[in-house]
Amino acid sequence: MNYNMEKDDNITQAQKAASMETIETKKLVINIKDLRKSFGDNHVLNGFNLKLHEGENLVVMGKSGSGKSVMIKCLVGLMQADSGYIEVMGQEVNTLDQDHLDALRADIGFLFQGSALYDSMTVRENLEFPMRRHKEKLGNVVDTEPLVLEALENVGLGHTMDLMPAELSGGMKRRVALARTLILKPKVILYDEPTSGLDPITAKEIIELMRTIQRKYNTSSLIITHDVDCARVISERMILLVDGINYAEGTFAQLSASTDPKVEAFFKK
């Protein structure tokens, strides 16, 4: 796959490196320190560290089974880490009670690998669902239709409101899922393999959408992927997750030029 989108937007790797320096002076949105998680004898995370700044696009790359999804699930409290410190927007996730965790989750968008749309609900109901518990965040709106329509139009699917997920293609499902993550206007969006299972053209469209959304809402993005082309296009900074630790960090250009065999293995065509 080669999305080749940098040329379209005239964004060079040098510009990305420059913007990275600016970003690092910004406020921390996510801070993970020494995260550890094991499943029996399988030590998935062995002291993983991560810092995500306001407005930054950070890509975490790793092989299948390297613990990327486990890390992202620990981050939103879907999984309990064995040890380590996880802070999201100034709040330590592991010490929050359910009500505070739910309130924090309203500021976090999560795009699941398989879209995870609710099969038994229409597209409209799928988008309305997250609003049930967080209406005050949206100013106690009574008529949710304009918000649903806005989110769907952001992903170019305003006409699918009354369709069932089964009637949508894989790419459309991913877009609707993206619209669902946007409905609560999150400050940070977590993408779990956003392009997996999609054809190159649809994957390119999804990446373009992610960039548009990031620009429009100024969200911070944590992108979990093993798709090198996706990482190249969207990342401002990258972390390579190997053997449960952040093995290497830097811009795409820095990492792709590395001669370390473990790093090279990710970028070999």
Binding site: F110, A116, L117, Y118, D119
Partner: peptide, 10 residues
């Protein structure tokens, strides 16, 4: 992951 999606949405 629909159950996880519900949980994440609060």
């Amino acid at each position: 992951e629909q159950i996880d999606a519900m949980e994440v949405s609060g």
